[in-house]
């Protein structure tokens, strides 16, 4: 019953940062357009402004990171159960991902008007739309819908990852925190490459790369963005489930 209040609070928290983020993006875009407008005739614009929307992934990941600890103390102090905190926050992250992906998709419609622009989605999956005129794509509703869905699920997965990391870190003792946050990167950056180079003839790296490629829908040709959507959804669910398990027994700590 307190889920709505939690949602409202978290959503309010996101408002200003999101506004600032998009103003910066639009601002940079407009600055990037100046040369294009100045050199109106002649050669195609050389300013590459494509794919910046990937910064949205980082931004929403950080929003996910920020949506637990300070709010947890505030909600607990106002007698709100962890269950309501979880669902309210998940709801607010879903809303955030939806709003951000909507605006990002709209960029795909409006940005090309002034300069050459391709969304990150198009950069990855343009092979799937090879037969179509790029300029027409941006008014093609099926393309935009797929772009929106893919972007939304990617953003949501990033938010879920951020949220999970911060709840997980809150529950971990200092020793365990060190173990995970240093251990996991070390595993991937040092241990696996070493094992691969000397023992398994790069099979592990091969398999990992293959897994990533396939989960993004590049198993066959043309690439299938919907596979990636399923992958992102799976990642989101896993992270949110793990977050719930962590938050269930989170206690109010000193200070």
């Amino acid at each position: 019953m307190k889920i709505k209040s939690v949602f409202y609070y978290q959503a309010r928290l996101f408002c200003t940062p999101v506004l600032v983020y998009f103003l910066i993006v639009i601002g940079l875009y407009l600055i990037g357009c100046i040369p294009a407008i100045v050199m109106k005739d002649g050669a195609e614009q050389t300013i590459q402004f494509s794919g910046f929307d990937i910064s949205g992934v980082i931004f929403i990941f950080i929003m996910g990171l920020c949506s637990f600890k300070p709010s947890f103390r505030f909600f607990i102090g106002n007698s709100i159960s962890r269950k309501s905190q979880f669902w309210g926050t998940v709801g607010s992250l879903i809303a955030l991902a939806a709003v951000m992906s909507l605006i990002t998709t709209l960029f795909s419609v409006f940005f090309p008007l002034l300069t050459n622009y391709s969304s990150f989605f198009y950069i990855i999956y343009n092979a799937a739309y090879a037969g179509l005129d790029p300029k027409m794509l941006y008014t093609s509703v099926p393309f935009l819908l797929t772009c929106f869905l893919w972007t939304f699920l990617l953003f949501l997965a990033a938010a879920a990852a951020g949220y999970f990391l911060t709840v997980f870190a809150y529950r971990m003792s200092k020793a365990l925190k060190l173990f995970f946050f240093i251990g996991v990167p070390v595993l991937f950056v040092v241990i696996i490459p070493i094992i691969d180079t000397y023992l398994t003839q790069m099979t592990i790296s091969h398999l990992l790369v293959k897994a990533v490629v396939q989960s993004m829908g590049f198993a066959g040709f043309p690439p299938n963005p919907y596979i990636a959507c399923i992958t992102f959804t799976g990642i989101t669910v896993v992270f949110f489930v793990l977050s719930y398990l962590c938050i269930r027994r989170a206690v109010l700590k000193e200070g």
Partner: peptide
């Protein structure tokens, strides 16, 4: 425990600072 309705009947004031920055 974890019951919003029961929790709505009480308010606890302690020396910890729980309000956001």
């Amino acid at each position: 425990m974890e019951n919003d309705r029961a929790l709505s009947y009480l308010f606890c004031m302690s020396d910890q600072d729980l309000y956001p920055e």
